[in-house]
Amino acid sequence: MLREKICLECVAIIDYALAAMFWSTLFMASITVRNLETDLKERLRRRAADHGRSMEDEVREILRTTLADDQSALHPAEAIRRLFAPLGGVDLEIPKRQPMREPPDFSR
């Protein structure tokens, strides 16, 4: 039961990671910030003007530089490896190849 649960969780994590990688290459994410204080918005506008950027570009740059050193954002493959590392590895036996079967005859 535990092995089946872990296997299903693994499949779900891998499916999510693959979907995230696929969709992130097609679409850029966007966010909306509501209830931003007037003073904060004005400081952002001035900062953007000082750097010769739009407010939107300035926010992107702030997020990039702030999150660049964030070690909590793991690559999905690394997160999966860390999740299953305590369980140890599995050595699977590779079955020997069998001769090819004759194709079915549907002429009858």
Rank of each mutant, 00 (worst) to 15 (best):
G89W: 05
L83F: 11
L92G: 03
R81G: 02
G89M: 04
T65Q: 07
H75I: 14
G89F: 04
L83S: 09
V90W: 07
S72D: 09
D91N: 05
E78R: 12
A68E: 09
L83Q: 14
R64I: 01
E93Q: 14
P76C: 12
A77Y: 09
D91V: 09
R81H: 14
L87F: 14
I94C: 07
L87R: 06
P76M: 13
T66A: 09
L67P: 02
P86K: 11
T65K: 07
L83W: 13
L92W: 04
Q71A: 14
G89V: 05
A77G: 13
F84R: 05
R64T: 01
L92V: 08
L67F: 06
F84Y: 15
T65S: 10
F84P: 00
R82N: 14
P76R: 03
E93H: 12
A73V: 15
A73H: 07
R64P: 01
L83Y: 10
A85M: 05
G89L: 04
V90P: 00
Q71H: 07
D70G: 01
R64N: 06
H75W: 14
T66H: 03
A73N: 08
D91T: 11
I80N: 03
D69H: 04
R81S: 08
A68P: 00
L83N: 06
A73D: 05
T66E: 02
L92Y: 09
L92R: 08
S72I: 03
A79N: 07
I94M: 12
A79L: 15
A85V: 05
A85D: 11
P86A: 04
Q71P: 02
L83P: 00
A68I: 03
T66I: 01
A68V: 06
G88S: 08
R82D: 13
A79T: 10
A85Q: 13
R82C: 04
D69P: 01
D70L: 03
R82A: 13
S72T: 15
T66W: 02
E78P: 00
D91C: 02
R81T: 06
A85C: 00
V90S: 03
E78V: 14
P86T: 06
L74S: 11
R64W: 01
F84K: 02
A85T: 12
P86N: 10
L87C: 07
T66L: 04
D70K: 02
A77L: 15
R64Q: 05
L74H: 14
R81P: 00
L74T: 09
P86M: 10
R82W: 05
R81N: 06
R82F: 04
A85N: 07
S72M: 06
G89N: 10
D70V: 04
R64A: 01
L74C: 02
A85H: 07
A73G: 00
A68C: 03
A77E: 11
A85Y: 07
T65V: 07
Q71N: 05
G88V: 10
V90G: 00
R81I: 12
R82M: 11
L83K: 15
L83A: 13
L83M: 13
V90Y: 11
Q71W: 02
I94E: 11
F84S: 00
L87G: 07
G88R: 09
F84C: 04
H75D: 15
R64G: 01
I94G: 00
P86E: 05
R82H: 12
R82T: 03
L83T: 13
I94V: 15
